[in-house]
Write a protein that binds this DNA or RNA. Sequence first.
DNA 1: CGCGCTGTCGTACTTAGTACGAGACGCTAC
DNA 2: GTAGCGTCTCGTACTAAGTACGACAGCGCG
Lengths: 222, 222
Amino acid sequence: MPDSSALRDERPRLNRDRVLEGAVAVADAGGIDGLTIRSLSKHLGVKPMSVYYYVANKDEILDGIVDLVFSQIDLPSPGGDWRAEITRRADSARQVLRTHPWAIGLMESRTSPGPATLRHHDAVIATLRAGGFSPALTAHAYALLDSYTYGFALQEAGLPFDGEDTVGDVAEPIMERFSTGEYPHLVKMATDYYLQPGYNFGNEFEWGLTLILDALATRATR
Amino acid sequence: MPDSSALRDERPRLNRDRVLEGAVAVADAGGIDGLTIRSLSKHLGVKPMSVYYYVANKDEILDGIVDLVFSQIDLPSPGGDWRAEITRRADSARQVLRTHPWAIGLMESRTSPGPATLRHHDAVIATLRAGGFSPALTAHAYALLDSYTYGFALQEAGLPFDGEDTVGDVAEPIMERFSTGEYPHLVKMATDYYLQPGYNFGNEFEWGLTLILDALATRATR
DNA sequence: CGCGCTGTCGTACTTAGTACGAGACGCTAC
DNA sequence: GTAGCGTCTCGTACTAAGTACGACAGCGCG
């Protein structure tokens, strides 16, 4: 047997990246509460204490996966049309946060930005400045755009359903309280609008983004 | 001794509201991680298992305090000027979420809205409709306003500092990575703008809200 | 007086984070 | 080679936290 490896060591050997990627996978599958050192180690095919060779503690894993998620968001390119670039980045951010909704809640409480997060900020600022935004307007616009994007993702994550399915299923239990007449306007909006076939909350994202970008464009050329 | 009470029972007797209020107080003091059944029971002056007489489990506490926080946000009044009412409610929401930043992360993952949350939705919808917004525009506007408000609160919560103090303290450790020239635009914005005396991220809220309300007003009167 | 209800708590089991240190493997300098 | 050393993995065990289960104390009532 020429192979020097110690028996069937199928595992390609652990490293920090594999730990963080595994953590993202586990969180995607079972939510952030489902991510434990033990569930992670099982996913990685090792024993719990092995992961501590690559991270100091669980908090470091949480910081790491937040930055990892950020790294998946498309960076805007300062060379292109600012509006197209910012739109692309906003859509990408929303898409990524839809895939990893647990990351939204982690952003609060994790206060030290990782390299991907910083790179991201840098690219957005560069794009806006290159688009003719003054420093002040850039600051305003960035705060506004990020607030909108993260906030929208937060609301989407809070929706009990995914995509366009089963609006009715969810509305059912709430409808009981509705029937008491306590929330008349909400009921009316729900039945007249939200529960109509074809309504999809996700479509609201584009509407709001367009409004914001229109308004920013007006202020940029002044 | 005519008093029938059993000795020095200073405690006014537990109830569900006192449990939830205590949980908010503990979370305010020590963050959401500092809120445990044991820390809560100590705060309440009882033993851990006593709180389980009022709530089924910890998740119910988390749902409850999210709704309790929501109940602290000023409701807009459908009778008044829609713009003033919506502004007041947005400012109030931001203020409340600044006081209880841990609530933002809880919104995601807690998918069943409590009565305060529903009452809130009802009032906002009523105010917009009374202000002349069509159902479609109401839906658009609500998604936009809430996204912005929650997202802004989320970003504020992520800031490592509170209020207007010590921007420099925080920038220091990050500046190390800055010095490598990896984030030139971010550095420039920081030194030229963010780190200038008088800059306060919190002020961005009003700017963005004004932009959104201006744009909504335009679309409402069309 | 016994019964059932309300509220509090003691005990103990389970899960999770992780400190500590033991080893297994390979590499290098003698 | 062989003694050591760095790299990596893991076994053991301690602590903190959620909470099931049931005891029990006080109270009102028939």
